[in-house]
Design a protein around this nucleic acid. Sequence first.
DNA 1: TTCGTCAATTTCGGATCCAAGAACGCCGTC
DNA 2: GACGGCGTTCTTGGATCCGAAATTGACGAA
Lengths: 241, 241
Amino acid sequence: MPTLSTKADDIARVLEDEIVGGVIPPDTVLRQEFLSERFEVSRTPVREALRRLAALGLVSFEPNRGVRVRSISAHELREAFLVRAELEALATEVATPKLTPDDLAEMDRIERRFGELTLELRAQARSGAPRDSALFVEWMQANYAFHDVIYRAAELPLVERIAKGARRTFMGDRAWRARAELDELYAKNDLQHRAIREAIGAGSAQAARVLAREHVLSSNRLIEVVLETLGAAGREPGWGR
Amino acid sequence: MPTLSTKADDIARVLEDEIVGGVIPPDTVLRQEFLSERFEVSRTPVREALRRLAALGLVSFEPNRGVRVRSISAHELREAFLVRAELEALATEVATPKLTPDDLAEMDRIERRFGELTLELRAQARSGAPRDSALFVEWMQANYAFHDVIYRAAELPLVERIAKGARRTFMGDRAWRARAELDELYAKNDLQHRAIREAIGAGSAQAARVLAREHVLSSNRLIEVVLETLGAAGREPGWGR
DNA sequence: TTCGTCAATTTCGGATCCAAGAACGCCGTC
DNA sequence: GACGGCGTTCTTGGATCCGAAATTGACGAA
């Protein structure tokens, strides 16, 4: 069987997912030997994987002292959203004349599901019930799916790569809390999706662009409220120290 | 003496500069042993450096077959400029209210130098003289210096990093040719700088934003004409095969 | 008690060594 | 003469080993 990937690549992918998914919390120090035992390889491929993560900006590399999972400041988070807003605006503008009826139908399908999930989340936000993390993740995925249709049609791989890179880095390990304001923000998010969809349907690339930009900036506000950084609680055992 | 950097980092930086600067032409295959001899180290740090370059997208990594310096297609080049246009527009908008009188004075100083260089290049373009590569590089650096003032004031490190990353990848090994259209494009570039400067001076962030975006897109056109890809000629000895 | 010094331990960066996969060329066959 | 199988050689991926830097902790002096 021919080799399609190296162990360093495999390890890098796994660690990447775990870091952006919050499985490995920020500020965790990644010990080479620990990782080499976990993946049952020597330290050599582990170090190559860590180099990759460092180049992607997911970890900070301190010579002779190890690598540490980067925590993201509120300022950095805001900047990441600014970048996403500009690039999604661009992608949306480019995609608008390219979207096929099939694409639009898919967007409608995703948007229906997104609307349902939004209603559930809004009910939850109003009731002040403890957050259902799985529900939020599903909502987020539907949100991403909506935008992915646009990225796919835009055919701008570089834009897609950068924007999706800026997309991560927030589903960290922080606790979150329901809030009255959330209800409103969820509703707004849903409405913005529909507005974008309609602008595309009407063939107005400029309107779609402006809407997409505003939408991402609104998402920023939503995420900020959702995070409401109640400190870093509830670490998984085995990672902290 | 404490160690401030690793050999892998040093090697990566050197190779990075050489690739973006066109010293190492696209499609060159980088042999690990060759590099380890050149830098007088073993292959281990070399491979870590190559991993970094791969993560940055400068080289493509084919398992068990080595790394190859990525060549950039016209389409990719265009997309890189689209990204830069959006992000520079953002940075310019954010920077406008933050620029100090000192910053503006520095922009004026750079712009004066840029104007002189532009005049030289225009004369060259009109005369059809063989391109003076050093002059073009100097012009390009003055161009970058102008924008760097804006980036510095904007205080958006992520935006700066991405935009500067998209900035490279074109000063390749291609031959270039003078053209009548170039004269006009050079002049336009210079005028756009002044317009941006004036919009900032007038405190209009929105106008500066729009101008910055158009400026980068114009630069794209300029670069496309300058490159005029006459095939890949004049490789440095020692890199080709 | 607290601070500074120095040794022991841990962890990292890099060199060397070995196995596995790919490229190349030779030869035989059709 | 062209194509395909097979062994050699070259290059890469990964494991192991070693020296160096940093951290830790014990000890002693202020």
